[in-house]
Nucleic acid binder design. Structure first.
Lengths: 203, 203
DNA sequence: AAATGATTTAACTATTTGGTTAACAAATGT
DNA sequence: ACATTTGTTAACCAAATAGTTAAATCATTT
């Protein structure tokens, strides 16, 4: 088998496809643009990935696999709620600053095709909230935090961390800040958001 | 001028275009589908709106004009921060439950074309955060609320209210709830979110 | 009721785009 | 060395799709 070259092209294609799909979405992406970016012939895309749908699926799964572990950290480790909130907020925002198109891409494509999440749910490592819910209930009982439903706290954590990156143009316009000021705000949020949450739930 | 019919068709087109664009986005929408939904010939779309771009623009401006007043309420009225948070949260979530595709649509299309926001900024009634920032600073000085930057508080309010509707499929999957339970969670948030915010900032 | 102008339709066009094919090149096994 | 498999390309194809046109119909004015 001639394996020397193809390993490289396959990766080149996936890298190019990532960039194009994550910025333009499934509907806005063009196979030709991906080919150009990967510096190969358009036929190669089909040689390696058969169809646009399958190439997209590869990109999507890849993106999702990058995001999921971030969530599992907060859901499944053994630290306290407060520690989890602080670690997650700091880590997650650092992570997203490195991959700014990721959350928007995933959310946009799941809205376009909500059944897609079913394929993801099957794979092991899919975030599960049950342990987190129990821990919240326990810390409430122990008087460490104020009463709140685990689901709601979890949604709040996601919302505060993810939203500004998903709605960047809107937030920039409303808050009336330029690019530089926006980045500064996001950096501040690494601790701001955690404080905001802890303030709210700590007894 | 024969004005009896066209007023109706024009509205029919806009209504159909709204539905299709808001669900499928600019790139996913098809002129034929809009024509079918409006029960008219495809040529009529061009007769009234010239091009797909202009029809889209009409829909987008319309959607934005629906959302903006909701924000101006919190930014510009004279109630206290606490009252604003409570009113906005309750009103906004009720509003979005009636227009579930609106925030996703606006955010998605602004990400696709960030310059679009410039056109919106020109129009009067575009939300401005300055008054809100001053009010936050004042209430901090008066010892009513804890120190927080106005921009950050504003982002947090938006995030907690809007995010679950933008990321619905993701939230449903992670929180492991079905449609009914999700709706219940959203309903609970009308007061939950306000409490969460107030808890965090109240001295 | 004829003329005029606005509205509507069916058929058509040009272009874009995902996908295919067949020939060619490079690597690998024997 | 040569045959076979794998990788790559250019040219092509068919379907989808935004947009056009010219004729027909409807409403309004005189």
């Amino acid at each position: 088998m001639a394996k020397t070259k193809d390993i490289n092209t396959e990766k080149q294609i996936l890298d190019a496809a990532k960039k194009v799909f994550q910025i333009k979405g499934m509907n806005g992406a063009r196979m030709q643009e991906i080919a150009d970016k990967a510096k190969i012939n358009k036929a190669m895309l089909h040689y390696y990935y058969r169809s646009k749908d399958l190439l997209f699926e590869a990109v999507f799964k890849n993106a999702f696999a990058l995001l999921a572990p971030q969530l599992n950290a907060i859901l499944n480790d053994d630290s306290s709620i407060e520690e989890k909130v602080r670690n997650f907020t700091s880590n997650y925002i650092s992570f997203i600053i490195k991959h700014p198109y990721l959350p928007t891409f995933i959310i946009q494509e799941l809205n376009r095709n909500p059944e897609f999440i079913l394929k993801m749910k099957d794979q092991k490592g899919f975030p599960n909230i049950e342990k987190f819910k129990k821990q919240v209930a326990l810390e409430i009982k122990e008087g460490i935090i104020k009463p709140i439903k685990g689901e709601q706290l979890f949604i709040n954590i996601l919302a505060l961390n993810i939203f500004p990156f998903v709605a960047t143009p809107l937030v920039k316009a409303f808050a009336n800040v330029d690019n530089k000021a926006f980045k500064q705000l996001m950096n501040d949020r690494k601790t701001e958001v955690a404080d905001f949450i802890i303030n709210s739930i700590k007894v």
